[in-house]
Simulated assay, not measured.
Amino acid sequence: MDRPIDSGTYRKVVGRFATGVAIVTTRVADVDHAMTVNSFTSVSLDPLLVLFCAEKVSRFHDAVLEAGAWGVSVLPASMEEASRFFSHRGRPLNGQLAKWAHHRGDSQVALFDEALATVECVTKAVYDGGDHSIVVGQVTALATPGDGPPLLYHDGRYNTF
């Protein structure tokens, strides 16, 4: 039974799966790059591996592959504005982090001070995922700087507990 499935129906169906929201950051030639994701997940405990997916046509995609190191800031509900900002294409790179308190991790990537959790990684593998790349990273540092309800994404909208 080969029925064609259109991308709109696909988005609606997979959008029913609630996810957390994070911002992935990297740094190339002293320039910070950041992107909102809801495709972040744990992969392995031995070794410690996580992954996220980056759209191949985004400038973040090329930056994170070039840098080889990246950070993840898991967002609390209070950071919805940051999530929206870092999900927009074409925003200026210069000063984009200035509005949100952040610090440099061991790998010199930006990590948000209010994050519920932060993870720093080095890229171990990149897999083809259609119009995205699946970027797998080995964890090099972890922290839980903030607390509070998480920012969630479900059915095309931001939510929280």
Rank of each mutant, 00 (worst) to 15 (best):
W70M: 06
L45V: 11
A141H: 07
V139A: 04
L151P: 00
L93E: 10
F52I: 04
A98Y: 12
F161S: 10
E120I: 08
P145H: 08
V74E: 00
P149F: 05
K99Q: 14
L111W: 06
G90P: 06
S39T: 14
T25M: 05
Y127R: 05
R59G: 09
A117H: 03
M1K: 07
S58Q: 01
G146C: 09
F17Y: 15
V136R: 08
A69V: 12
P4S: 14
A69P: 00
T36V: 10
L49R: 10
M1T: 11
L49P: 02
R11W: 11
P4L: 15
L152P: 00
Y127K: 04
Q96E: 14
F85T: 12
G90Q: 09
T123A: 11
V109A: 06
I5S: 10
A115Y: 00
S87Q: 14
P149D: 15
V74I: 15
G95W: 07
F86Y: 14
G71E: 02
F86Q: 05
F85A: 15
K56Y: 00
T144G: 07
S73H: 10
N38H: 08
T9L: 15
H132G: 04
V57G: 05
R84D: 14
G15C: 10
S87E: 04
V43Y: 01
S107M: 07
P150D: 09
V64N: 03
V57Y: 01
S44P: 12
D32R: 05
L49M: 09
A67K: 14
V139S: 03
T41Q: 07
G129Q: 00
A125Y: 11
P47N: 04
G156R: 06
L97D: 09
L116V: 01
V24D: 02
L116F: 00
E120R: 06
V57Q: 11
T144P: 04
V50L: 11
